[in-house]
């Protein structure tokens, strides 16, 4: 199961696991869209994404964009090496990730 949503102490957390590609994109987005639109706190954990193509990157861009909105209560967990590598290859600099890089 590529995507799993759990309610933990600090709110809801969505775990994206395995491949995040064109084959999983529709299902993943269907699960994510209502959560991203909700005002409730949300954490998206991308640390277990094993591979990522262009379609997967677009979903990550949408999550990052939602997390960057002024009133957003969305937190992005640390990306997996696959996600980082795909972002670098695609020349994409996403605000939540680049902020984290500067913090560390």
């Amino acid at each position: 199961m590529p995507i799993e949503s759990r309610t933990l102490d600090h709110g809801r957390t969505v775990f994206v696991r395995g491949a995040l590609s064109i084959w999983e994109a529709a299902d993943t987005w269907r699960t994510l869209l209502p959560l991203l639109s909700s005002p409730d706190p949300l954490t998206v954990d991308l640390s277990e994404v094993e591979s990522c193509d262009g379609a997967g990157l677009q979903i990550i861009c949408q999550i990052a964009r939602a997390a960057g909105l002024p009133d957003a209560a969305i937190t992005l967990g640390p990306p997996s090496p696959s996600v980082t590598a795909a972002l670098v290859r695609a020349g994409l600099v996403l605000e939540p990730f680049s902020n984290r890089a500067q913090e560390t």
């Binding site: 994109a25 993943t28 987005w29 869209l33 262009g54 379609a55 677009q58 861009c61 994409l92």
Partner: peptide, 18 residues
């Protein structure tokens, strides 16, 4: 570039916007 990505509600995950 991500400037062609639409609002979440209009986003089709199988279309290429990048």
């Amino acid at each position: 570039y991500t400037d062609r990505l639409p609002e979440p509600a209009l986003f089709d995950p199988e279309s290429c916007y990048l």
